[in-house]
Structure formats: C-alpha cells, structure tokens
C-alpha cells in the first residue's frame, strides 16, 4: 500500500505552549484515516500542519517534516498555493461564501486560473455530483448558497474542495454541526470519496471513526499514543490509555 503522507517529528508551538510533541505517522493512499482523542489533544493542530494552515495564526511555529509523495511540504521551494490545491480541507462549521451555489464551487478553480465558462460549468456539475448534492440543487445552482440546509451546506463545501481536484482531503470534525440524517449522508459520501482521494478525518465521535475509517490514530496531550488499523485499535488496543479512552473512561 502506498504511503501518501508521512510525518516525522512534527512539533507545533503556540507561543510558549507546545501543542504537538513530535508526531510520526504514515497515512496511506485511498484510505480514510481517523484521528481521535479528547479536546485539546492536538489532533486538529496536526491536521492543520498538513496544509500549513497553522501558519496563519500569529505566534505559531512548526518543526519537523511532512512528506507528501516524498516531498517535504515545509521545504523552502514548496509553494503554499500549490500545496493547498493538492490538500483540500473541510472545516467543522460549514462555511458557504455569500454567493451562489455555482460561484461557491467555481471559487477554487478560478483561483487556479480557470476562466473558461464551459470548463467551469463542467467542473461545477462534476463536483456537485461527486459530493452527492447535484440532484438536490441542479435547478437552483445560481441561487444564493445560504439558502441550503446545514447538511447541504457541508456537502457544498466538500464540492468546493473537490472542484480544485485535490489528492488529499482533510476533514476537521465535519459532522459536528450536522443532524443524524445529514451525518449519515456525509459518512456515506466519505466512503465513496476514498476511491479517488486520501482522507484524513478528525472526529470526536468514536462510532463515526469506527464506521468510516480504515486506520485510526489516538492523540493525547499532543502525542500520538497509538496508530493502527481501525478494527485493531478498537478491538485490541495496545495501550492502556487508548483502551481507557475508547471505553469511555475519560475524554
């Protein structure tokens, strides 16, 4: 199995606080990797090192190396714009832009220089289909995106990410603001997306991690305590702390 992403000794500091204490992890291509752990354990911080989004927060310092297809994304010759085109991100709260559904999806391709209308039309349709949203919105793609429901908005955000044709999709608790029906639709979608993408998902919900992921990493206090196949981790945790967490003794 091909390793898509590899991190070595990744440390993150917020001013005086060290949020990550050296993370080493291999993330496999076309698999869903879940990162679980209690609030403040560093799982979201780690996720944001993969598209270098932590850099936007004043006072943040990242050390270590992360390889995407064997290339260190923290080396000087890496263009952040190109990196973020390859590594898309879905956030906790679906944040649709104040424009039409169409314009939301076309936003990313336009950044990367696609102006041709026919080409944009086809990207928008393809992305909405891939995000399982096309059937619901095809009659009103030029209407404001704010009119969609929460679950639809999250799928629109995913379509917006798919439109730039990434290779890796990072998801930061993508279902935490959704109702159960929208959540199950989203999980179904994640299962379909992994055919073409490598997915890393941060979640609070252990059942969700068990349902959608192939691999799971357990974070605690800025360290990666345990990382293995999801089944193994949930059935036979090697570390006492993992067992305590997944059996609900803390967190």
């Amino acid at each position: 199995m091909k390793i898509k992403l590899k991190s070595e000794e990744v440390k993150v500091f917020y001013k005086d606080f060290q949020a990550l204490h050296g993370i080493d992890i291999d993330i496999y291509e076309n698999r869903v990797t879940a990162l679980i752990g209690p609030s403040g354990c560093g799982k979201s911080t780690f996720l944001r090192t993969i598209n270098r989004l932590n850099e936007l927060i004043q006072g943040t310092k990242t050390e270590g190396r992360i390889y995407l297809d064997q290339k260190d994304i923290y080396s000087a010759e890496i263009d952040v714009v190109a990196l973020r085109k390859k590594v898309g991100m879905v956030f906790q709260k679906p944040s649709v832009f104040p424009m039409s559904i169409y314009e939301n999806v076309a936003y990313g391709p336009k950044i990367h220089g696609i102006k041709n209308k026919a080409q944009l039309d086809s990207i928008v349709e393809k992305s909405l289909i891939a995000a399982n949203l096309w059937q619901e919105v095809k009659e009103r793609v030029h209407k404001p995106a704010a009119g969609l429901s929460g679950g639809q908005q999250q799928r629109l955000v995913i379509a917006r990410v798919l439109a730039v044709e990434p290779e890796v999709i990072l998801m930061d608790e993508p279902a935490s603001a959704l109702d159960p029906i929208s959540t199950s639709k989203l999980e179904e979608l994640i299962g379909e997306l992994k055919k073409n993408y490598t997915i890393v998902i941060v979640t609070h919900n252990m059942q969700q991690a068990a349902r959608v992921s192939d691999y799971t990493g357990f974070f605690l206090n800025g360290e990666l305590i345990e990382y293995s196949k999801t089944k193994e981790l949930f059935v036979n945790p090697r570390d006492k702390r993992t067992e305590d967490y997944i059996t609900g003794r803390f967190g």
Binding site: N51, L53, V81, M89, K93, S95, G108, I111, R160, V164
Partner: peptide, 15 residues
C-alpha cells in the same frame, strides 16, 4: 466578515 471565510479561502489555495 466571518473568520471562516478567510480560512476556507486560504485552504482552497487563495492568496
């Protein structure tokens, strides 16, 4: 203007 607009836009590769 909501902060999320910025992080979403940057995450899509926008300057």
């Amino acid at each position: 203007v909501p902060q999320e607009y910025r992080s979403n836009s940057f995450a899509l590769g926008a300057t």
